[in-house]
Write a protein that binds this DNA or RNA. Sequence first.
DNA 1: TAGGTATTTAGGTAAATACCTAAATTTGTG
DNA 2: CACAAATTTAGGTATTTACCTAAATACCTA
Lengths: 101, 101
Amino acid sequence: MKILEVIKALSNQTRLDILTWLKEPFDYFPAKELIDYKASLGVCVSDIAKKAKMSIPTVSVYLKNMSAANLLIATRKDQWTYYKRNEKAIQQLAQLISKKL
Amino acid sequence: MKILEVIKALSNQTRLDILTWLKEPFDYFPAKELIDYKASLGVCVSDIAKKAKMSIPTVSVYLKNMSAANLLIATRKDQWTYYKRNEKAIQQLAQLISKKL
DNA sequence: TAGGTATTTAGGTAAATACCTAAATTTGTG
DNA sequence: CACAAATTTAGGTATTTACCTAAATACCTA
């Protein structure tokens, strides 16, 4: 785990928010958008962009960065890319801060 | 704890290094500089700047930021400002990432 | 293959961050 | 008080980040 890369991926309010939203999607996204929601996949880019009230390209890049930092897991299915949290990596980061930093 | 502020204070390699150095000062600073070292105070700005191989003003500002984010505790004594880690805040951050993020 | 939806990539501007040097400030001391 | 040491504040340039819009790509379905 490259801690600086992970921390940089977290150093933006929108990206922090996205992590929070993905923790409990039903609390944050319209039910309508989650009709076919599967925890194994997560939420698609455009739904996240809408929630963030930001452009799709911007959010697409954010998600990609967080995924590169291993904080999110991306799954491409048909024309959608779904993102979910990588809980393991998040706990690993917490451990690292607690023990090693 | 303002998580974004804390994370931003961590999002730079030098600042991460400083936290590591202050964890075990005797492992990282010359013994000579630590002759009067007290864990209750920490290490002074210029010793940290020398270790970082960066200018004193730059490091002074870094330390101030980290202190504002509560990651470090500053103590002014005579003409020196000493910095030590705020272990409580670091554990609090780890908890926050583990449980709330 | 044509056309539609979702996403990504490119390319641009504005703001923030990373540094530095010089100047100002704080604090101790002869 | 004058001078020295440590630090902070100011002010500047270069790089990175935060966004956007437009264009390109991916993948579906008729």
